[in-house]
Computed example of a mutant assay.
Amino acid sequence: MAIDWDRLRVFHVVAEAGSFTHAGERLGMSQSAVSRQISSLEDSLGLKLFIRHARGLVMTEVGEQLFRTAHRMAWELQSVEAQMTESQDMPSGPLLVTTTVGFGSTWLTSRIDEFLDRYPTIQMEIKLNDSELDLAMREADVAIRLHRPNQSELIQRKLFTVHFHLYASTSYLEKFGIPKCVEDLDNHRIITFGNPSPEYLGDVNYLERLGRPENNPRQPILRVNAIYGMMQAAREGIGIAMLPDYITEGEPSLVQVLDDVETPEFETYFVYPPALKASKRVGVFRDFLVSKARDWSF
C-alpha cells in the first residue's frame, strides 16, 4: 500500500488545524479541495482518519497513529531544510522550545527579546506546558526542565539552582504584621500549591509542614495548582507563599520574610536530543541561556 506524499502533507496540516477550512487557509487551497484530498487518502488506505461533525474534526485511532508518524517526518524534513539554509554566521530556521508555564511566562519571556534581536532569522515558538513534552517524539526541539532529565540519552546542560523563599505583599504585611519566627506562621494566612504537586517543584508545600508536627500540618487559606497563580495571590495580599526565585523577579510589591529559614531548592537544565547536537540554532540558544543564567543574581 503506497501513501501519496502530497496527501500525507495535507493530512498533517488538517490534523494540526482541526478543520478543512483552517487547513485550506494554511495550504492556500479551498475547503473542498482539502476535503477531497483527505477522502482520497482514506479511500487509498481503506481506513477512516477523521470523524466529521459540525464542530470540526476528530482523529480516529488510526488517524492519530498516522499523525504521529507524519509529524516526525515533517519535523525531520524541517530540520534538514533549516540545517541546509543555516549560514555560518547567522543560524536560521524554526526552534520549538518547551518549559513550564511558571518559568516560561516569567524568567524566559522577560529575556527572549534580546535573543530574537540577535538572531532574527530564527523562528522561535515557545510551548508552555506543565506536562513534559516528549523530545524523542519531536513534540519540541529543546526543553528547559526544572529537574535533571530522566532520559539518559538526552544532552543536558545545567543552568542554575533555583531557591524557594517566603514572600508576602506589602499590603498583607501592613494588615497582618511581619512574622518574626517560624512559629508565627501559625497565626498567618498561607498559600500553597495543593496536592498532588508536580515532582519537578520538589517540596513546594513545605510551608504547610515547616515547624509543625508531621501529623498536624498547617492549613492554607488558599491552594492554587500553578506557581504563577500562587505568586499572583500573594501579590494581591491573600497570604504568605513559598515561591521560587525566578517567579518573584521584578515584583516590587512582594517582600521576602523569614529570610534566614532554610527552604527547598532544585536544579534547572537545558535539554535537547542528540540529533540536534550539531544544530546552530540549538547551539546559540544554549549559549544564550547559559550566559543569562550566569548573569542572574539569586
Results as ranks from 00 to 15, higher is better:
K175F: 04
G239K: 01
E25T: 07
D260K: 10
E153A: 11
I238T: 13
V34W: 06
R52F: 04
E61Q: 12
L276D: 07
P264R: 02
E262I: 06
R235W: 03
S39W: 03
G250K: 01
T100W: 08
P120G: 00
L133A: 04
I38F: 08
G63V: 02
A233T: 01
Q232N: 10
N195I: 02
L207M: 00
R7S: 10
F298N: 12
N129E: 08
D89L: 15
V14I: 05
F270W: 02
L222D: 04
Q88L: 14
F160A: 12
P179N: 08
G177T: 05
M242E: 07
M137I: 04
A234G: 03
S19D: 07
R36C: 06
S44D: 14
V14F: 05
L166A: 00
E25L: 11
R148E: 14
A234F: 06
I227M: 13
I112K: 07
S110A: 06
D4H: 10
M1E: 15
P213I: 00
Q232M: 08
G18I: 02
S79F: 09
M242Y: 07
G56L: 02
N187K: 14
E86Q: 14
L8A: 15
R209S: 11
F285Y: 14
V101K: 08
K280E: 08
V182E: 12
P94G: 06
G194F: 05
T161Y: 00
L254Q: 02
F115T: 00
V10N: 13
P220E: 00
P149V: 03
I190Q: 09
R52Y: 03
Y167Q: 01
W75C: 07
A293L: 09
I191N: 01
M124N: 06
N225S: 13
E265D: 10
V224F: 08
R294I: 07
L45P: 08
F176Y: 10
L96M: 11
A33E: 06
S35E: 12
L258M: 01
L185Q: 04
E81V: 09
S40P: 05
P217C: 01
I122S: 09
R157Q: 14
L135H: 07
S32H: 11
T69G: 15
M90N: 15
A15S: 12
M230C: 15
P91Q: 04
L159C: 02
S110T: 07
K292Q: 14
E81G: 07
T60P: 12
V204F: 02
K180N: 15
S32K: 10
V10S: 12
G237W: 08
V257I: 14
W296G: 10
A275I: 09
A168V: 01
R212C: 00
R189H: 12
Q151M: 09
Q31A: 10
H71A: 13
Q256A: 11
L108Q: 06
F67W: 12
I155N: 15
R52V: 06
R36T: 09
Q232K: 11
Q156V: 05
H71V: 03
A143V: 03
V162M: 04
R7K: 14
E25N: 13
L289K: 11
E199D: 12
N150W: 08
Q88N: 13
F103K: 03
S39E: 10
M73Q: 15
D134R: 10
R145E: 09
T263M: 15
I122Y: 07
N195G: 05
